[in-house]
Design a protein around this nucleic acid. Structure first.
Length: 605
DNA sequence: AGCGTAATAT
DNA sequence: TATATTACGC
């Protein structure tokens, strides 16, 4: 059985197969409709029986729409379309008339549709700026991104291109409901309450709350009863910060951030959809997090735990938030998905913070924490260093034996894989690379992968949110990042020459060359070998970026260095002492501190 | 039960 | 990628 659009006027309902209980409205649909997401326990509520659909009967009939279009024929056409949908239409050709109508009768309109023309007057903008209490949809014949952006920036809830179709118009009620549910509690105007209550009422019926069935009524009636939608106080309503969902069918300027995987207009994947709403419906997160909280064990003192929590973002990628402990201050890493949008910044953190306490948490092995760890390991000695004892010595609240075991596993692996004295640098370099990468790429938003290495791109049809060479663009558009960048003094990862610091794996040996096999790879033709001075500014040289030959050589050389007691692999000759010394001399190294530190020295067989 | 390790998941 | 989780053998 399928839910057809005609069965339910809520036109964003996705068509979802269901069991014989009735009709399943998708999760995303409900988010759109009601502004909050039902918990897993309440999932049966998403099963709409034919009877329940009565609650939405005639919805959204009666929506009062103000139309402002200087072009009379165009205005008439829009009016006809809207009336055909049982909306009540008030048409204006002049922004001043429209504004005075709104101010004299604020209860008269639920939503405005305003034409903005690039050629003639700026009346549309004037109306937009002066009727902030009214959810306003801007329309234009020209799909100019600049205009679109301006409209949205000025507070429009949506931008639609003309000609308007029924598909475009039938979802405009969402903006009304969205505003009703997303105004601050203290800013919720009396006129919004009926809308909210109506929706709640119907939804409670759907959740099987029998006692509410007596209050069953249709949305069309409730919309008629709404007096007005404006906020009474001067406080900016939340909806200004979280625009209502765009009409799903449309691919216009406001959805340029789509990463190319736009689905059929009414066929959103639940995962993606719910992700997109992470930032828009606070109550969505609250409800589902409560559930998560019950199943996810919490640290005894979360505020003292070096914990990160992961956040899912719209594109499925994740960001992390570090909730710091007694070791350092809280720092936000924000999302690394490059998909940041204004609606996800700033106030949005409210919901994110709620979320923060729910999800699995990661230990952020910061420099200091790692130091503590290493200190404990060294104190215990390599033989006695077992997770439980390390944990005892570290005395970090919130840290679990499992955390330590996991870190210990990695620690030992690194010790095994790295040459003595090289470990430290290697460890640091890895994090260096990662975080340089993080720093460089973070501001790049929604940048197609095939552009990633492009330094000169053709004039884009749409603006890029950031690209190599213009990374500041995104920041300029959306304001400063919501996350502080890594602070050098706080992080071991930003030391200019991390290898010179002995706070991790062992004793540093050399200034950081590009790869362990420094005497060799520099002689391989075609390999880019930055000078030491370039080191800090070069892009991270992960194994993925290495030339395959370089990677192989690195591996072989590393092996040879790690296990000098083994014969050299076939085809690899030991460098002559002279060549090594010459190379070292070239790099400004006159002596080699071969002394290894403590137990980290490998014992030859 | 705790540990080490490897594989796998997040 | 880093870290967590899991499975397994000890």
């Amino acid at each position: 059985m399928w839910l057809s659009r005609s069965d339910c006027n809520c036109s964003v309902f996705t068509q979802t197969p269901c069991n014989d209980q009735g009709i399943i409205c998708s999760k995303s649909t409900l988010i759109y409709c009601i502004g909050w997401e039902l918990s897993d326990d309440a999932k049966p509520a998403m099963v709409c029986t034919a009877n329940d659909l009565q609650g939405w009967k005639d919805f959204p009939k009666g929506l009062r729409v103000l139309v402002l279009d200087g072009d009379r024929s165009s205005a008439a056409e829009i009016g006809e379309q809207l009336e055909a949908m049982d909306y009540h239409v008030s048409t204006f050709y002049d922004e001043n008339e429209a504004l005075s109508a709104v101010s004299s009768s604020p209860e008269g309109f639920h939503v405005a549709i305003v034409e903005v023309s690039t050629s003639s007057s700026l009346g549309g903008f004037k109306f937009l700026e002066n009727a902030k209490d009214l959810p306003t949809i801007m329309i234009s014949k020209n799909q100019c991104l600049n205009t679109t952006m301006k409209c949205i920036a000025l507070g429009a809830v949506e931008f639609l291109s003309k000609p308007l179709s029924e598909d475009k118009l039938k979802n405009i009620w969402q903006h009304v409901v969205h505003r009703a549910f997303n105004s601050r509690a203290n800013g919720l105007s009396e006129s919004l309450k009926p809308v909210k209550e109506s929706v709640e009422s119907v939804l409670q019926l759907q959740t099987g709350n029998e006692q509410d069935k007596t209050h069953k009524r249709t949305m069309s009636i409730d919309l008629e009863n709404v007096s007005r939608f404006g906020d009474n106080d001067n406080e900016q309503s939340v909806c200004d910060k979280y625009p209502a969902p765009s009409t799903p069918q449309l691919k216009h300027g406001t959805r340029l951030l789509d990463d190319g995987d736009c689905h059929e207009q009414t066929n959103f994947s639940i995962e993606k959809e719910s992700g997109e709403h992470d930032g828009e419906c606070k109550s969505v997160e609250t409800s589902c997090e409560n559930l998560n909280a019950e199943s996810t064990p919490q640290p005894t003192e979360p505020e003292e735990t070096p914990i990160k929590e992961e956040e899912d973002f719209a594109d499925g990628s994740k960001g992390e938030r570090a909730v710091s402990l007694n070791l350092q201050n809280e720092k936000f890493l924000s999302n690394a998905d490059g998909h940041t949008s204004p609606k996800k910044m700033g106030v949005l953190n409210d919901s994110c913070e709620i979320k923060a306490n729910r999800k699995k948490m990661k230990v952020d092995w910061t420099s200091e924490l790692h130091k503590k760890f290493v200190k404990a390991v060294e104190q215990l000695g390599i033989d006695q260093a077992i997770p439980s004892r390390i944990l005892e010595i570290m005395k970090v609240e919130g840290l679990t034996r499992h955390n330590v075991a996991s870190h210990l596993q990695k620690y030992r692996m690194h010790k095994r894989q790295s040459a003595p004295g090289e470990e430290d640098r290697k460890w640091h370099n890895q994090r260096d690379a990662m975080q340089r990468n993080f720093y460089l790429q973070r501001p790049i938003m929604a940048y197609p992968p095939y552009h990633s290495n492009q330094t000169i791109s053709p004039a884009p049809i749409y603006p890029m949110w950031g690209q190599p060479g213009s990374q500041t663009a995104a920041v300029q558009i959306w304001g400063p990042p919501a996350y502080p960048l890594w602070h050098p003094t706080e992080s071991w990862n930003w030391k200019p020459y991390p290898g010179m610091h002995v706070d991790a794996w062992g004793c540093p040996l050399f200034p950081p060359p590009q790869a362990p096999g420094f005497p060799f790879n520099q002689n391989i033709p075609g390999l880019h070998t930055p000078k030491p001075m370039d080191y800090r500014f070069s892009m991270p040289r992960s194994s993925f970026e290495h030339h395959p030959a370089e990677e192989v050589v690195d591996k072989v050389v590393k092996e040879a260095i790690n296990k000098p007691w083994l014969p050299l692999p076939l085809g690899l000759k030991a460098p002559s002492t002279d060549s090594v010394l010459a190379e070292l001399s070239k790099q400004g190294i006159s002596s080699i501190p071969l002394g290894n530190k403590g137990s980290s020295a490998p014992k030859p067989c």
